[in-house]
Amino acid sequence: MAKEVAGLIKLQIKGGAANPSPPVGPALGAKGVNIMEFCKQFNARTQDKAGKVLPVVITVYSDKSFDFVIKTPPAAVQLLEAAKIKSGSAEPNRVKVAQVTWDQVKAIAEDKLPDMNCFTVESGMKMVAGTARSMGITVKGDFPSN
């Protein structure tokens, strides 16, 4: 028989850096989950993505057991990585800090499509490009047409 779900917890945690402090501690602790067990597992599973922000969806069951799914980093974090910069522009309207290509935008859109509020890669690309512009990252060239 499937276990009864007691709750879903959505967090974003840096790879390898889960610890029992807030928000992990209060969110899991309140449900009677062994927080240390979650941290050990999350950190072991994210050793190769240490330091990168990773969305995680934790399912807690009524017997206080849990499982979780780790997603890829948010689009903005992936854009910084693609542009090889540490942070976006403090004044994105005036100061452009980096460039990415439409191929890079497409790769991020394809990766994040399941988490985005859109149905096609093209609309995903437009959203990612919008995020890039808001960060002061320019997308090189024109939107690719098929």
Partner: peptide
């Protein structure tokens, strides 16, 4: 997209 952007900065 500001939620994503602020996360990327504060990280």
């Amino acid at each position: 997209p500001w939620d994503d952007i602020i996360v990327s900065q504060l990280a």
